[in-house]
Amino acid sequence: MASAASARTKSAPARAAAKSSGSAAAAPQFSKEQELSAYREMLLIRRFEEKAGQLYGMGLIGGFCHLYIGQEAVVTGMQMALNEGDQIITGYRDHGHMLACGMDPKGVMAELTGRRGGLSRGKGGSMHMFSKEKHFYGGHGIVGGQVSLGTGLAFANHYRNNGSASMIYFGDGAANQGQVYESFNMAELWKLPAIFIIENNRYAMGTAVSRSSAQQDFSRRGLSFNIPGEQVDGMDVRAVMAAGAKALDWARSGKGPYILEMQTYRYRGHSMSDPAKYRSKEEVQKMREEHDPIEQVRARILRAKFATEDDLKAIDAKVRAIVAEAAEFASNDPEPDVSELWTDITL
């Protein structure tokens, strides 16, 4: 089982830290436990995605494969702010979200390779995995589709009055789809517990935000519906968690939706076939060197002496073992039985 489970558990000190932050500008301090948990979680996503990229290159993964490398702090920080029962839904860049939800890395990787042990039994692929148990509702390949669907998850929480909230992730590209604003309108109209998390990684495929968006401050995209929003340093897991906790307080107290613009960056291409002509190598290099979400946590852990280099190496080795096991399973697991072609069409 992934170590992701630990990130789901919100400790009391974590809550206090988040609340005392005041604004998202000054990131709150994490406890030793939180720093180490965030480090482990983000590292798992990073190593998993690196391995997925490798398997793609070997021809074991086909079709589309969108890697989350660089954006790990967003979903990791948000998961630290959630309660059990809160739902998660996202688009096609979804491996990180699934791991952060605690879904089995072996099952995720085997789905990427299209094997019978995949979480969708090999019938979904990279963009389509689900887990009712982990409250993960996909994995959607139509840009922006998850925003209306996620608003429906929030509607269901509201209908059932169950106190849960829905985390609806989408990118700066999806933020220009019409249904996003249809959803904003209904979410605010009915005060639905929806957190709209815009992962602004600066490029919608190869189109820079400045070339696609009249309003580039995505936290303001809900203004005409009276939905509050804020910009968050999405490379700092502490800032993400604090902003998430604040937004969740808002939504759970019946005040309706909240928008979080997570300012982040993807190091890899949009998909595996991205020629990366639209940005410079220097730009990518600068982000990696100065803002890497994992390196930030690592430096803080060492500075605060929460762990030694050797301790971190041990964590790294453990994470690598999980990923290696997943890759091994995904490479050797058989393809789905041919009878699977005709199952799961209707119930």
Binding site: S148, T151, G152, L153, E182
Partner: peptide, 16 residues
């Protein structure tokens, strides 16, 4: 808002 409420309905249905 047909696109929006159809999607909202599908999301609600996915929760049962």
């Amino acid at each position: 808002t047909e696109h929006g409420f159809a999607g909202l309905g599908v999301g609600a249905a996915m929760t049962g």
